[in-house]
């Protein structure tokens, strides 16, 4: 592999080439091994400073980035919305410029507004990693999903991946769609028509509102959480109704192929989008996703932070 990485920022998968995505996944292979060592830490980013700026709450993504940075020997500072001067009226740009004045090398940003990471990346010398921006993209989540599929199935090309749930509000779905299509997968979106609008077909995916017809064809199902915090009531009648029509219940899971992978970005709502027995069953790779997220984020920090 002779590719040279030359991006200081990771904003989304839309702008990455197939080669760049594969390069990140191969780099993650090397970092996954570090987690199995007796001493789970390498000096690759020693002396670099990473700031986790989470303007929107998140525990799992922030913790994963934090641990990834620690394993690369970087120094880490966490800033959350409630403890930052953003609540005192400071603009995002001013906050970021202050962080840059402290010689931060990498800024990991979670923000409720789509485009916030891009905005900062263009204005700062600091490397900017998008940890989720509005309903735009969540590139490291999609990369860890791709990594997990590739690890479990040996390939992504020609697999049929079915993404179920709240697509409209989901940056995870968007990043996954870009990544999966670039790596040759067939993608079908499933959910209520209010949350899975026809407009997504323009991206090159299929859309279905009948889950039971699609499940027997799936090689991978990726279930998305219903984002109560993002949506108003009128998008679907109720949680019980959603579970009845689109939840991966024990009965519905019987329609799946024996080797179909069941994925979920977490946090899971047991009994809503997925039954407990299915989430904890043999086809579920939900916890592998968490482990792989660490390796993928180490790879992204190494690549973007290493050249900054």
């Amino acid at each position: 592999m002779s590719m040279r990485w030359n991006r200081k920022d990771l904003i989304g998968l839309r702008e990455l080439s197939t080669e760049e995505i594969n390069f990140i996944l191969e780099t993650a292979d090397a970092f996954k091994e570090v987690g199995t060592r007796e001493i789970k830490k390498v000096p690759a980013l020693r002396g670099k400073t990473l700031i986790n700026l989470f303007v929107e709450p998140s525990t799992r993504t922030r913790t994963s980035f934090e641990l990834a940075a620690h394993r690369l020997s970087a120094d880490v500072i966490n800033i959350s919305a409630t403890t930052s001067s953003l609540t005192k009226g400071e603009t995002l740009k001013d906050t970021a410029r202050n962080l840059e004045a402290l010689h931060a090398d990498v800024l990991v940003l979670r923000h409720s507004s789509a485009g916030a990471p891009q905005f900062l990346a263009q204005r700062l010398k600091t490397s900017v990693i998008n940890a989720g921006d509005g309903a735009h993209e969540h590139p490291t989540q999609a990369l860890l999903d791709l990594y997990t599929i590739r690890e479990k199935r040996g390939k992504i090309d020609n697999l049929h991946v079915v993404i179920i749930g709240d697509i409209l509000f989901s940056r995870v779905a968007r990043s996954n769609i870009f990544g999966l299509l670039k790596l040759g997968a067939k993608v079908t979106l499933v959910g209520p028509s209010t949350l899975v609008p026809r407009a997504f077909e323009k991206l090159g995916v299929s859309i279905s509102h009948k889950i039971d017809n699609i499940l027997p064809q799936a090689d991978v199902v990726n279930l998305l959480r219903i984002q109560h915090e993002r949506q108003r009531k009128e998008y679907f009648p109720g949680i019980g109704e959603y579970t009845r029509l689109f939840g991966l219940t024990k009965e519905r899971a019987k329609l799946l192929k024996p080797d179909c992978l069941i994925m979920h970005p977490g946090p899971i709502n047991r009994g809503v989008e997925i039954d407990s027995e299915v989430a904890d069953g043999p086809r579920s790779v939900i916890l592998d996703q968490v482990t792989n997220g660490l390796a993928v984020r180490m790879a992204v920090l190494y690549l973007c932070g290493g050249i900054a």
């Binding site: 592999m1 040279r4 990485w5 780099t27 090397a30 970092f31 570090v34 390498v42 000096p43 690759a44 980013l45 020693r46 002396g47 670099k48 690369l72 790879a299 190494y302 690549l303 932070g305 290493g306 050249i307 900054a308």
Partner: peptide, 16 residues
């Protein structure tokens, strides 16, 4: 590669 002491001082990042 991940144990080198010159990451950030080279223009090409060593492949891990």
């Amino acid at each position: 590669a991940m144990h080198r002491d010159d990451v950030g001082t080279r223009s090409d990042l060593p492949m891990v």
